[in-house]
Structures are given as C-alpha cells and as structure tokens.
Design a protein around this nucleic acid. Structure first.
Length: 258
DNA sequence: ATGGTAGCATCGCTA
C-alpha cells in the first residue's frame, strides 16, 4: 500500500498538477491539506475518474483536508472525535483505508511564539493526541499524517540559527509531537532514513528558498508499530516542488508491505 | 535590506 501526504496550497490552483502527479505515482491513499475549498466545490468526480473514493472536510478560503483512497474509505470522522466543542477550522479528517486508521491533519502554523495562534497550535496538538487516543489504539494499524508545521529535529531545518524564538522548532510543540510518538507512533521517513540530513518537504516561495535548498521537513507520516514494521520505502518527492505553479510543499510517499 | 511570493472571499490576511 502506497500512502502519501501533500499540502497542495489550494486544490483549485493545483488540480492539474495533482492529477498528473497521481497518474505518475499511483498512490493507494492520498492525504491532502490546504485544499481551500468548501465541500461542495471539492472535485470528487475528477478523482473518481482516477479510481479514488474521496472524503473532504473543508470550509472554503482557508484550511481544508481530504483523503483519497483506492482501498476503501470507512468510518469517517471529520474534525476531532473528542466530543467537546468542534474546532472552528477544518484541519483534520479520519477514515479507515485498507485496514489502516488514517488521520489527515493540517496543524496550525502558530505564526509566532507570542501570537494567540501559537497557543491555539499547542492546544490543537493536545487535542490531536486526545483524538487519536479515543479514536483508536496503538496496537492497531494507525497512521497520523499531514502538515505538522513542526520540524522534529534541528537537522530537519536548513539553518537552525534563523529559527531562534520561532515557531516550528520550539520545545513545547516538539514535546507535543514527542507525546504522539510516546503514544506509539513513529516518523516513518526518519525511521527509513536515520542518517538523512537536509531532507525537506517545504520551502518558502520567497527568496528563491527552494533553489537555495532552504527548507524544513514538516510534512510527516507517523505510523503505529505494526505499520512501521511494514514500511519498506519512503521519500520526499521534491521534483513535485519544481516547475510551474508548484505548491510550496512536496509530497511525502510511504510504501507499506501488504 | 525586517525584504521576498503565492493564494484567497484580493488593497489585507494567511502561510
């Protein structure tokens, strides 16, 4: 089973590129973030023509997440499954695809450490852990994936000195990512490439950052132990960041043995 | 140099 995550930064602006990429890569499960679409604008028929069932949870303008699957989509939960006040943003959707419980996440950016949005980011990550714990169990096949807006380690950052007192690398958000891992999840790309340095999944559009190699690895596929054991390959497809009208994120691909 | 680019419901916000 080939599963991928990709922050497409507007599915309306990116649909042709996404379609071409799906044709080339042939993933079984696709987790998309930042579709920036309302549910009634989601191009379900377009993906159906590529062989995918789809679920989308969007709000238009900002955020929006989707799962595409060739191996079934069951027991869909939009937003958090914690039974309290729904998060106002469309940032998470969960479904069972090919026997794996998949959560597709768009973690809040945080903006800056003194911004209310950073507090929201931390509480969102607390709710994600709560959600996963209620929704499933670490001894099941579980994947929690998406744009985490967190670089797990300093080597996932092009120049850590530039991120002093910045989001994406701060101790509190990394602690929350570590809590997900303590629950029973593993960063599958890092597991596959333990010594990899300077492999990034996002590059700012500005300053020619992509061409300078100035990026962050913030798009993650976390898997439970049974999933991690099945993981035989993982790559960031940085070719998808090249060319005309790219997303600022590259897709991350993970292959699992059947 | 506190810049730059891209997307959106576009002149202001989000990333």
């Amino acid at each position: 089973m080939r599963i991928v995550t990709w922050n497409v930064n507007s599915l309306r602006a990116r649909l042709e590129r996404v379609e071409d990429w799906l044709t080339d890569v042939q993933p079984d499960v696709v987790c998309l973030q930042e579709t920036k679409l309302a549910d009634d604008a989601f191009p379900a028929l377009t993906f159906e023509a590529h062989g995918y069932e789809t679920v989308h949870y969007g709000q238009g303008q900002w955020n929006g997440v989707a799962i595409l699957s060739k191996v079934g989509i069951a027991d869909v939960v939009a937003n958090f499954a914690d039974g309290i006040e729904p998060d106002p943003d469309a940032r998470i959707i969960t479904a069972t695809c090919g026997g794996v419980r998949v959560s597709c996440c768009y973690v809040p950016n945080g903006r800056s450490l003194d911004d209310d949005h950073y507090t929201y980011k931390l509480s969102w990550l607390d709710r994600l852990l709560e959600h996963v714990g209620r929704d499933t169990s670490p001894d099941h096949d579980v994947i929690v994936t998406g744009d985490f807006n967190i670089a797990p380690e300093d080597r996932d950052v092009y120049d850590i000195a530039k991120f002093e007192n910045a989001t994406h690398v701060s101790v509190p958000e990394r602690e929350r990512l570590a809590a997900l891992c303590d629950w029973g999840l593993t960063d599958l790309f890092r597991r596959q490439h333990a010594d990899a340095e300077r492999v990034f999944s996002w590059w700012d559009y500005r300053n020619g950052d992509f061409h300078k190699g100035n990026g962050l690895r913030i798009d993650l596929v976390l898997g439970s132990a049974s999933v991690a054991e099945r993981c035989e390959w993982s790559v960031v497809d940085r070719n998808a960041r090249k060319g005309k009208q790219p997303s600022d994120h590259a897709p991350v691909i993970v292959d699992l043995r059947d």
